[in-house]
Each structure stands twice: as structure tokens, then as C-alpha cells.
Design a protein around this nucleic acid. Structure first.
Length: 633
RNA sequence: GCCGCGGUGGCUCAGUCGGUAGAGCGGCUCCUUGGUAAGGAGCAGGUCGAGGGUUCGAUUCCCUCCCGCGGCUCCA
């Protein structure tokens, strides 16, 4: 029978030849690393016997599907080790993930001292190169085989009657599995357990928490080492370490989740605010300031009392219950409602940068990226339905521009109508297709999350990733058809009758806190000159130049630069090092030569060597970079 | 909130098989006047996360709580 290869050629192969042998026959060199095969678009094991003509291609570890086969095979080894060590453990599911893989078990909690034994078991299987052996059995046979495991029985029940069920045996361990898998455990030399934790059961319900063992796998030990090294380097960028070290912010054990912005961090926040405010002015926004605390009645109107109460900081005064606002919406609604409005005022764009408080669950707090108090670059835009597309388009452009300024990679996600929603399905459909067409029009690739929309309207979320690849939601653009109605907002239209506006809730950067947390990791603490709390540090070579340095520092400060100077107690090298460790982008050195020439020797981060320039040139160049918000010094 | 792990000067860490603690960096003072990532010396700084229990005696063992870290859930 004739097998066609990816290069377009074909070969006559005897029926019954395994996919692996066939591939080797075609091109032993190119298929050396193949861990599975693709037959007519379908993934198969290398051991799979070919029974009919078709197109056959190798599946390599670098392919997305190949990577998943590798990770998923690794998950089987973990399940094998766990069940050998703890026979009561019931394997549930073990899929590949973005980073690696995990396997969930219904079992008593694992402890850290069991980890070495687990790892030893896995290494043993790898060393023995246990084969992944596939077989197909009937549903009835499968039900008998997995009779002790309700989770597996659940999966079997979903298979249509009459269809065979495939199982994979690896040594003593047998798992229900679609496959394919790598040929044997020897392919998983670079397998590594990342950790374990309790997880809350998802679709399979059984009461208590499951145990999840997470890991990552590579074909070789060397690739694992590279990965672990990269991970260690990424950990060194952790904003929770960098922030306090650079004196940007701190936390106190007395009040977890509440950032303390130190003087240097406050400069960064103010610059971010200035960046956002500059655009607000261009885009026709006005800024408001409304109370931080509201009585229960307001939250009953807004719906927060019903939907968000357990996440709010509440207090009682004179027998009335008040809550710190978790969102800015109520204030904006009340400003809109404070007098009658005309269609001529729409779109009405009200921005507010107020501290918000959310009582986040204790286990979820995470430095700046998940705090209990934060400030959003928030605004509420009151529009007519016809005005929505143009407004959203402007916002998307804004996101693109802002993310470009910070050199951040980002992804967009469209969340659609949830099971429980307010309003009519037609309104939702219209809003969703409108958001889609704006995203398409902007040429953006985006993910659709069905049913993930807020109960009051669909939304577009903007995600960015931290140094360890964790994804954080920053910007969000949400359509709201409910809040204006709940607050009884109205405007007089051209027809002279009263209409209810639609509200667009929108943040671009998200919050100063989360955005800066992620961005600090992105730039490894080397903030661009326009954000750097100290832009220049001036160092005298010896005591003799101290007066000149003092003079320069004053001059530059007057010119609007953020400058620090040092005396000459330590050696020059030592002071250069201190400035580098403090992540100051520009270091200006002044010795006798510079005093005589009326120059400074400038060392800029990321550039080799120094260059000589006059103080006026430095001011001019740095101002230009700040004005255009250039990323690199 | 759930599971696991951790908490020793500002930071990074050593140590005590139960007899109340050390280093380096940082800080301060002095010496050094040095040309692009650590010059030298001295000094100060710790109720060993908090509370309770066991003990003649607890930083060390046990319990509870607090905080942190990883993950889950939720979210900007």
C-alpha cells in the first residue's frame, strides 16, 4: 500500500508495518526525534500498524501536539508512581498544560517528605524504559477494569456504546487514555515534579479536595537543566523582591495585601498617572472624585450587595452599614444622575483614580499583582448604543499604544453571555457581535471565552504575563446595560423623550499596582528613563569635584531631571556598582578632566562604555527621551 | 478560604541531637582621594514570627494563631 510523506513523495509499504518503522524507512535522520506520528491528520503511536494507504508525518517534540504528547506521557509516569506508592490514590485526569502537565488524584494529602520517593519511582521507570502499550477493549471490559475508580467510570460512561475504549499500560500501571504516547518511558529523561497542592474538584464531584501533582517534561536531562536555569533567573525578577530592594514599595505583616508606596515608588505611580491623564485629556475625558465609602442602600441599587458583599470591607456606624467601594461605578452613576442630561453630552466620559478595597481571599494575595487595595485607571463612558463601536475602537487603539510604550506582549479575550445573565438574549447577541467586529477590524487575534462574561454584559479583557509566565488580567472593556437602568439614568434624546444610556466600564493599564508588578518583572527592575525614580546619579571621582557635582545636581534638578549625587567616601568602582544595583539608568562621573573640559562622563544602562558630553546636552537628550517616553536609556 | 512547605539582625543565610545565637552584605564612625560593578578598620544592631504547653531550663519538642511561598478557586 502507498504511504505519502510530508515532502510529497510516496513509498510502497507492506501492510502491518508500524508507523515508526515506516517513518524510519522514509527518512531516518528527520524522524529520529519523532515521538509519535500523524496519519491522515490523526495522532497515532509509533507502534501503530499501518493498515491502509494514507499520508504519514512524524510528530516531533517541538510541535505543539508533540509537546503535549510528551507532557501527557509524563503525567502517566506520575500517576504510575503515585499509585505504586499510595495504592488508595484514585487517578482522575492528567492533561498537558501551558507550562507542563499535572495529574489529579482523589486521595489523602501528600506531604513533602513523600516527594523523594515519588521522584525515585519515576526515575526508575524512566531508566527501565517501560513501554507505553496500547490496547483496545470493550466498554464492559473497561468498566470491569476500572470498577474501583468512579472518575474513570465517569469518563467511560461518556464513550458512545459499541465504541471500543483505549487503554495504555506502562509497567504495572494501566490508564484509560486516548493517546498517543511516546514509545517508552526512556523518552522522558527530563521529567521533573514542580510541586503538588490541593485543588477544588471541577466537573467530577466527590466532596473533598483533590491532590494535584504538577510537573514538566523534556526529552533530555540537558533540556530540563536549561529550563530550570531559566526559571531560577525568572524568579530573580520577582517584583516582590525587586520592589522593596529598589525602595519602590513595601508590605507590612500587620496588614497583608496593602501596598505601602515608598517615595521612589510614588514617583513611578505619579508618572504612570501622568501618562494616562495625558491621554484622557486628548480623548475627551473628565475626571471626578467621589466618596470611598457608601451605605448599603447604594450597593443594593448597584447590585454589589447581592453579588459582591463577601468581597467587601464593611463597617457599621450609627446602626447603618457602610462598605468601602470595591469599584468606582456607583460614584460615576451618581454624578451622571446629579442633574438631567442631554444626548448632546454623550459620550460622557468620567474617569476616576480612587483607591479601591476588595477583601481578597487570604491565599490569593500576591504582592502587587493581587492586593486588597489598589487604584485603577478607571473610567465610565455613558453612550448611546450607536456610539458603542467607535468608543470601543478608540479604546482598543489606546490599549495597543499603551502596551507598545511598555514593550509588553498582551492577549485579548472576549467573554460572552454567561448562563445567568440580565437583559435580553438579543441585546447580548448584538453587543457580542459588535465587540467581535471591532476586534476583527483592529486585526487582533483574540480568544473567546464562552459564558465568561459579567452578568450585566460582555467584555474584552487584556492579559499580560509575569516573569514566570503567569497570566494577569489588566485592562478590561465591559459593556453594561444594567447599571444605568438600576440607577435610573436617563438622557433626553433628539426626539425629546427620555432614554437610558449604556455604560462602558473600562480600564487600560488595569491598576497601578498590578500593572507595575508585572512591568517590573518584564523590565527586570530597569524602568525606562521616564519612569525611573532616579534618572541620573552624579559621582565625583575625588573630593575635589564634590562642589562641581553639587552644582550639577542642582542645575539638573531645576531642569526637571530626577538626580541623586554621592560624596566620595567609597571608591569610584564601588559607587558605580551601587548605582547599577540601584538600577539608575544614567551614571554621570565628574573628575578633574571633566571639570576642566566642562563635561561629564556618562554611562547609560544597556550601552557599552561611556561618552563625554556637556551638562546641557545631557539635559536635552534625557528630556527628549522622557517626552517621547522611550523605552531604552 | 483549601492542600503542602517555610519564618534566626534591614537583606542573604549558618547554628543550637533542649543550656537564651554567628557570618557576609547593608548601616554608622574613622582611615584611604580612588577613573567606571565590592579599598581597609572599628562599632551598633537579634524578646530566633506571636501566644500557650511539656521541661529545672525552649530559638530548638508539641499545640494554636499570624505572616510568607507554590498551587487551586476567584479576580484588576
Amino acid at each position: 500500500m502507498s504511504i505519502r510523506w510530508p515532502d510529497g513523495t510516496s513509498t510502497d509499504i507492506p501492510a502491518g508495518t508500524s508507523a515508526g518503522d515506516a517513518l524510519r524507512h522514509w527518512n531516518a535522520q528527520q524522524t529520529r526525534l519523532a515521538l509519535a506520528a500523524i496519519l491522515d491528520g490523526e495522532l497515532i503511536d509509533l507502534a501503530h500498524p499501518l493498515t491502509h494507504a494514507g499520508v504519514l508525518a512524524p510528530l516531533l517534540p517541538d510541535d505543539k501536539a508533540g509537546r503535549e504528547v510528551l507532557q501527557h506521557s509524563a503525567a502517566h509516569l506520575v500517576a504510575k508512581a503515585v499509585t505504586e506508592l499510595i495504592p488508595d490514590a484514585l487517578p482522575t485526569d492528567g492533561p498537558p498544560t501551558d507550562e507542563g502537565f499535572y495529574y489529579d488524584f482523589e486521595m489523602r494529602p501528600l506531604t513533602a517528605d513523600e516527594l523523594p520517593a515519588l521522584e525515585a519511582k519515576i526515575r526508575e521507570t524512566v531508566r527501565r524504559k517501560d513501554r507505553f502499550e496500547r490496547s483496545e477493549i470493550s466498554k464492559t471490559e473497561a468498566e470491569a477494569l476500572f470498577r474501583h475508580n468512579p472518575h474513570k467510570l465517569g469518563y467511560i460512561a461518556k464513550v458512545p456504546d459499541g465504541r471500543p475504549v483505549s487503554i495504555y499500560r506502562t509497567g504495572t500501571f494501566t490508564d484509560l487514555c486516548r493517546g498517543p504516547h511516546v514509545p517508552d518511558a526512556g523518552w522522558l529523561e527530563g521529567i521533573h515534579i514542580l510541586g503538588f497542592s490541593a485543588v477544588i474538584p471541577g466537573t467530577v464531584s466527590s466532596g473533598g479536595a483533590f491532590q494535584r501533582v504538577r510537573g514538566v517534561a523534556f526529552p533530555t536531562r540537558a533540556e530540563l537543566e536549561t529550563y530550570l536555569k531559566r526559571r531560577t533567573e525568572a524568579e530573580a525578577r520577582d517584583h516582590r523582591i525587586l520592589g522593596p530592594r529598589l525602595e519602590l514599595f513595601t508590605f507590612s505583616d500587620e496588614i497583608p495585601g496593602f501596598p505601602f508606596w515608598n517615595p521612589k515608588g510614588m514617583i513611578v505611580v505619579r508618572e504612570l498617572e501622568a501618562f494616562v491623564r495625558e491621554h484622557l485629556a486628548e480623548a475627551g475625558y473628565s475626571e471626578i472624585r467621589t466618596p470611598l465609602i457608601y451605605p448599603q442602600s447604594i450597593y443594593e441599587t448597584s447590585g454589589h450587595w447581592e453579588h459582591y458583599r463577601e468581597n467587601m470591607f464593611l463597617t457599621t456606624v450609627d446602626d447603618r452599614t457602610f462598605g468601602l467601594k470595591p469599584m468606582n461605578c456607583p460614584g460615576a452613576m451618581l454624578v451622571f444622575r446629579s442633574r438631567s442630561r442631554s444626548y448632546r453630552e454623550l459620550p460622557m466620559r468620567l474617569a476616576e483614580f480612587a483607591p479601591l478595597h476588595r477583601l481578597e481571599a487570604s491565599g490569593t494575595i500576591h504582592g502587587l499583582t493581587r492586593a486588597r487595595e489598589f487604584v485603577q485607571d478607571d473610567a465610565h463612558v455613558f453612550v448611546t448604543e450607536e456610539q458603542i463601536p467607535a468608543e470601543i475602537r478608540t479604546l482598543i487603539e489606546w490599549v495597543q499604544r499603551a502596551m507598545g510604550t511598555f514593550h509588553l506582549e498582551w492577549t485579548a479575550e472576549l467573554s460572552t453571555r454567561p448562563a445567568k445573565f440580565l437583559g435580553t438574549a438579543e441585546t447580548w447577541d448584538r453587543a457580542e457581535s459588535m465587540l467581535k467586529s471591532v476586534l476583527d477590524g483592529a486585526g487582533l487575534k483574540y480568544k473567546i471565552s464562552p459564558g465568561e462574561g459579567a452578568f450585566y454584559g460582555p467584555k474584552i479583557d487584556i492579559h499580560i504575563r509575569d516573569s514566570l509566565g503567569r497570566s494577569w488580567q489588566c485592562g478590561t472593556i465591559q459593556l453594561d446595560y444594567q447599571l444605568p437602568d438600576r440607577f435610573g439614568l436617563q438622557y433626553q434624546g433628539t426626539d425629546g423623550t427620555l432614554h437610558t444610556p449604556v455604560v462602558v466600564h473600562r480600564v487600560i493599564l488595569g491598576t497601578w499596582e498590578r500593572f507595575l508588578g508585572v512591568f517590573l518583572e518584564h523590565c527586570a527592575g530597569w524602568l525606562p528613563p521616564w519612569l525611573a525614580p532616579v534618572q541620573v546619579r552624579v559621582l565625583p571621582v575625588t573630593e575635589r569635584q564634590v562642589p562641581r557635582v553639587t552644582e550639577l545636581a542642582a542645575e539638573w534638578r531645576t531642569a526637571g531631571l530626577r538626580v541623586e549625587s554621592t560624596d566620595s567616601q567609597d571608591t569610584l568602582s564601588k559607587r558605580i556598582r551601587e548605582a547599577e544595583v540601584a538600577h539608575v539608568p544614567y551614571i554621570a562621573v565628574v573628575g578633574d578632566r571633566e571639570v576642566a573640559a566642562g563635561t561629564v562622563a556618562l554611562r547609560a544602562h544597556g550601552q557599552k562604555g561611556q561618552r563625554s558630553l556637556t551638562p546641557a546636552q545631557l539635559v536635552e537628550q534625557l528630556r527628549a527621551k522622557v517626552a517621547t517616553r522611550e523605552y531604552d536609556p
